[in-house]
Simulated scan of single mutants.
Amino acid sequence: MSTSHVAAEASLPVPSGQPVYLDNVLLDENPGELWLRFRFVAPNIGQTVGRVGYDVSAVDMDHLCATLAVPYVAQRELVPARVVISLSDKAVAFGENAPDVTQFFEAYRLENADCIWEEF
């Protein structure tokens, strides 16, 4: 698995307007095929009152797939089996157990430069 760390200075634009920062991109072949994992920190997500919930964050993840993942894949001429977009309220090492961290995930397959949601 290779990791590309990205230091995002400013929040990325998403439909909800919540702050979202790219933490890193992982090229993961452990599932037996290439999965690209775009990992973001979104400090305001969570289930408590006043936090940004999954329903709103799901729209943001769709947007991040379309606006960041699709161009990334095209520019690098990659052919991933899946693209995973994840949001965490704190940065967490990949695969680390962090029960105190809220994390939302969505998986997509890319088809004709479109992100097609894949239900787990």
Rank of each mutant, 00 (worst) to 15 (best):
F94E: 10
F104H: 00
S16T: 07
P99C: 12
A10W: 12
A74C: 06
P43D: 12
S57G: 07
V52P: 00
F105V: 12
E106H: 03
M1W: 10
N44W: 05
N97P: 00
N24S: 15
V59Y: 09
E29P: 08
R76K: 15
D89K: 02
A98K: 15
H63S: 11
L26F: 05
T67Y: 02
K90F: 03
R109G: 10
T48P: 00
R109V: 12
L12N: 07
I116H: 05
E118I: 08
A8T: 15
L34V: 11
Q18E: 08
Q103D: 11
E111K: 14
A91T: 09
L64D: 07
G95N: 12
A113G: 15
D28G: 02
V52F: 02
V25E: 08
G95V: 08
L22E: 13
E106Y: 00
C115A: 11
F94N: 09
Y21S: 11
V70Y: 08
L87T: 00
V73R: 07
A10C: 03
M61G: 00
E106N: 06
V83W: 00
A107L: 04
N30W: 07
D23H: 05
A91Y: 00
E96D: 04
M1I: 05
D62Y: 04
S86F: 01
Y108A: 03
E106L: 08
Y108Q: 02
Q103P: 01
T3L: 12
V41Q: 02
T102A: 12
L12G: 07
V84F: 01
P13S: 14
I45Q: 01
Q18H: 08
N44R: 15
D60T: 02
G17M: 12
I85H: 00
D28P: 07
Y54E: 14
V56E: 07
N30L: 01
V59S: 08
L12V: 15
V6D: 10
D28N: 13
V79C: 09
P71L: 03
A7N: 14
I116N: 10
D23C: 03
S86Q: 04
T3F: 06
A69E: 09
V56R: 02
V84T: 05
R82Q: 13
E119G: 10
G46N: 01
N97Q: 10
V92R: 07
R37W: 10
N44Y: 06
P31R: 08
F120T: 09
A7R: 14
Q47A: 02
S88A: 15
G53H: 08
